[in-house]
Design a protein around this nucleic acid. Sequence first.
DNA 1: CATTCATTTCGTGTTTTATCGAAATGTGTG
DNA 2: CACACATTTCGATAAAACACGAAATGAATG
Lengths: 147, 147
Amino acid sequence: MLDMENERFIRISKALGDDTRLRIVQFLSNCCCGCGTGEDESELNACLCVSESPVPSTGASSRLSHPTAGEVCCQINGNPKISSTVSHHLHELEGAELITLQKQGKSVCCALNRGTLQDMASQLLQLANEDQSSCCQSSNRQKSACC
Amino acid sequence: MLDMENERFIRISKALGDDTRLRIVQFLSNCCCGCGTGEDESELNACLCVSESPVPSTGASSRLSHPTAGEVCCQINGNPKISSTVSHHLHELEGAELITLQKQGKSVCCALNRGTLQDMASQLLQLANEDQSSCCQSSNRQKSACC
DNA sequence: CATTCATTTCGTGTTTTATCGAAATGTGTG
DNA sequence: CACACATTTCGATAAAACACGAAATGAATG
């Protein structure tokens, strides 16, 4: 296991080791607006997840490509406005690079960072399939009196 | 994501989200004696990880197929005898099904449960590649006034 | 410029987790 | 049976994580 630092691995594991945060990741994972750029109107129009806020100058609706923090919060605990707790969890997930947060107007858009999940999966597979033939001669073994 | 319960996913994530426990898993992962049954003498004889305790009746050495808790502890913190802290971590990992502990005489043998790591990896890949087209109609969306 | 709205920051109480040493358990040995 | 040994259990302590409400920030609106 060379690539990912333990510190990062632990940060991600901790982030995923909380019920609220896991549910946030799950919601963002199967949310159809979690990956669009907001430019392809046709797919966005069919999606209930997008935020809809009227633009007064044109009278048209502006649509965001990702669910807002408030919408995520609503999905998680039914709270109509974002709680400080969910806000905190979102930033925790952002710190672990599991999601990205982007300010759009007075809202914050949340998007899943699928690459981090893939990295994590490959680290786990590496741990599962680690070459077992090298441990005894290897230098990564701690030299101690006891073993 | 149907298969693994959130509770189990969280248990495993928490177990991997601690530096000491991660190092235990890493050690067991690339330990060459982490998978043998102890019956194939030829491969075990070359391995420094095996426990060697003289059997007085025959005068020969008995070899265990896995590192003992004490040996794991030694690798982790250089402590010649197992600490209560490492013992606790081992049982935490056992609870998450990441390792198995088996009593052999007065020692406990520790073996990595590679299947759990693989399961976890596939869960993460599933999260990463979740179908995004079904969220808006799907029933797994919470119905709330706010969204 | 005052107001509303979405979000964050802050202060605090509560729970969980990690760590340590001492005592207890249990297994094999002389 | 007494003893040594590996490990676990227990009790205490300290640190980290979670949760909550109130106040603060900052952007859009009237």
